[in-house]
């Protein structure tokens, strides 16, 4: 095992530790910086000597949440995220099952093409279609547009998950008197709950973070958080403290989800990439 010891030598372990600490700090530092700025007065933000030593204040957060609108935007993002995720699961999971079991290459290719197409390609037609149906500015157009991200994502993740469920289980259920769809509902679905959790978490994150659909399709009352934060700037001077407090508020739920559901987030992000 001489060669092994050269690879795992003390020098290598030390170098690895240094490189990974640098990497971790680069990932973390900007977010810490944003967090610090959100607890600073604008005077402290403009003063280089108070980068790390300052008296923390909650005034930015109270300023952000004092605007009744901000809670409304929070609620909008939540409704649209939950609504689009639930509906996408409803149509995406059965579709993925059928596509996996029947090998529907053209159909799954079509669904996955929607993962590739630039959204700007579709925004003008969507705007006019939704406008003619009087849906611009309502939740429905936003939920439908966010589903356009979630459905291909869910199909992509779930096709891989269903590959791991043996067909024999369904055949056994059929012998026991269940229909095909009954076997899917009562035998297969309970087995793929972790895959559904992965899909749901990822779908919610992508909906929560989406900017461009709500930029075009939302009205003043249905604005989502990213659009609300975007509207913070554009005035003569930027209230950096309040802006950073708003940014922390919108990012915090995502970070909590990533910490609690780490396994699912990683599974979703890497789905399908490893197979041939």
């Amino acid at each position: 095992m001489k060669a092994r010891s050269s690879l795992e030598s003390r020098g290598f372990v030390g170098l690895r530790a240094v490189l990974l600490i640098v990497f971790g700090l680069i990932c973390l530092a900007p977010i810490v910086w944003m967090l610090l700025a959100s607890f600073k007065t604008n005077i402290d933000i403009y003063d280089p000597s108070s980068t790390f030593s300052f008296t923390p204040t909650l005034q930015n957060y109270s300023a952000v949440f004092a605007q009744a609108d901000f809670l409304q935007f929070f609620f909008n993002s939540l409704v649209i995220g939950v609504g689009s995720t639930a509906l996408s699961l409803l149509i995406g999971v059965p579709a993925a099952f059928s596509m996996q079991r029947f090998g529907m290459a053209k159909s799954s290719g079509l669904v996955l093409l929607s993962r590739v197409i630039p959204h700007v390609t579709l925004l003008v037609p969507w705007y006019f279609i939704f406008a003619s149906l009087q849906m611009v500015g309502g939740y429905s157009s936003l939920i439908i547009s966010h589903m356009f991200i979630s459905v291909p994502l869910i199909v992509w993740v779930m096709i891989g998950v269903f590959e791991g469920v043996p067909v024999e289980l369904e055949e056994a259920a059929r012998v026991d008197g269940l229909t095909h769809i009954g076997a899917f509902r009562r035998i297969v679905i309970p087995l793929v709950v972790p895959g559904i959790a992965t899909s749901a978490i990822l779908s919610f994150i992508f909906s929560w973070n989406n900017f461009v659909f709500a930029l075009v399709l939302s009205g003043t009352n249905t604005r989502t958080l990213p659009v609300a934060i975007f509207n913070f700037i554009g005035y003569a001077s930027i209230d950096w403290g309040a802006l950073m407090a708003a940014c922390v508020s919108i990012t915090a739920p995502m970070i909590v989800m990533a910490l609690l559901g780490q396994k699912y987030v990683v599974a979703g992000m890497t789905a399908g990439a490893v197979k041939g």
Binding site: I31, M34, T251
Partner: peptide, 14 residues
């Protein structure tokens, strides 16, 4: 995972 899940608009502002 933090950069990955952070909202891009907030990341841009940051």
């Amino acid at each position: 995972l933090l950069p990955l899940v952070a909202t891009p608009v907030a990341v841009a502002m940051m």
